[in-house]
Design a protein around this nucleic acid. Structure first.
Length: 321
DNA sequence: GTTCTAGAAC
DNA sequence: GTTCTAGAAC
């Protein structure tokens, strides 16, 4: 996905991670399994298996939980709503954030673990600020104001065409790296790869524009409400696939309409609860969860059968990736 | 974004 | 009586 935009910028170098300062809550459902391998993915250097990091999170999270009132939490507990902005403005994220929170970093983007993943794999990609980095010669005259990085809407409205293309290309490239890491991990833990969605929320609740990279199983204990589920359906209009945004910036004649559509997208979250894979109506969330588990088990069985027979997955590249 | 909980739904 | 959702509070 997200190709056709431009040659990639810089290669990311691995890092340490942090999402917002929220306690990570990996659960037994999470596929990030016990196995620890070294990532073989091309680009970055010291890669470390996602699974290892998430497991480490457990100890990290209990420590954090026990010191809730401290710094990183806003009053009353829970992650701060501008945690992402705090990450984005760090001058040295790799040294500031633990690997349990930071997945990857490059000179102009970060990829972090979502603190409350809504699927087996769920990461956020965000542009760093300043963007481009001050070290970049171009930065002298092209630094957009921080407000332009609040969300997708401000990116589209407050940034000139060239700048927003740069930001989107960088984010898209980082998302692709994250996808590769996820696919590696899927193969190692389940023996097959499944669909990954990449896109923005029309109305995000955390400040600082971020791109979701989320596996389409939607199996996670943190997925608790209809709004959670609807907010990631690529067919509703609240979740905006990055490829669609890329089409927008190629033809920006209708930009105002598109931005207006973003602003009025909240009502879409009240759409009746149906399965995003087969569209069957679900009377409640627990039933959806059971239903999604069934989808996953069936898909895995079918893929593994196909792999055994043909040596390759059934789904074609264009269908899945 | 989450947590908490009243009261609707079963 | 128990499960589940949705809105207020954070």
């Amino acid at each position: 996905m997200g190709n056709c935009l431009a040659p990639l910028a810089q290669s990311s170098s691995s890092a340490t991670a942090e999402q917002d300062s929220a306690p990570q809550q990996p659960t037994p459902e999470q596929p990030l399994s016990p196995i620890s391998h070294v990532f073989s993915t091309s680009s970055s250097s010291s890669r470390q298996p996602i699974s290892d990091r998430v497991r480490r999170n457990k100890s990290v999270s209990s420590k954090v939980r026990n010191s809730r009132s401290s710094s990183i939490f806003s009053m009353g507990g829970g992650p701060s709503l501008d945690a992402l902005r705090n990450y984005a403005t760090l001058s040295n994220p790799t040294s500031s954030l633990p690997p349990s929170k930071l997945l990857l970093s490059s000179s102009n983007t970060l990829a972090v673990f979502d603190a409350y993943p809504k699927a087996k794999y769920h990461f956020l990609v965000l542009p760093r600020y300043p963007f481009p980095p001050l070290s970049n010669p171009e930065s002298k005259n092209s630094i957009a104001p921080l407000e332009a990085f609040d969300d997708l809407k401000s990116l589209l409205m407050k940034m000139n065409r060239e700048a927003r293309e740069d930001v989107l290309i960088s984010m898209s490239n980082m998302a692709r790296e994250v996808e590769e890491m996820i696919r590696d991990e899927m193969l190692k833990t389940e023996g097959f790869e499944w669909k990954i969605d990449v896109g923005f929320h029309a109305i995000p609740s955390m400040k600082h524009v971020h791109l979701h990279v989320i596996s389409d199983d939607r199996i996670s204990p943190s997925l608790k409400t209809k709004k959670h589920h609807n907010s990631f359906r690529p067919d509703l209009g609240f979740f905006i696939p990055i490829m669609e945004v890329q089409r927008w910036i190629e033809d920006d004649s209708n930009m105002q309409e598109r931005v207006d559509a973003l602003s009025s997208a909240e009502r879409l979250l009240n759409t009746p609860l149906t399965c995003h894979k087969c569209d069957e109506f679900m009377t409640n969330i627990p039933k959806l969860k059971t239903h999604l588990e069934k989808h996953f088990v069936e898909e895995r069985a079918a893929e593994l059968r196909h792999i055994a027979r043909h040596g390759t997955q059934r789904n074609s590249d264009e269908e899945m990736f």
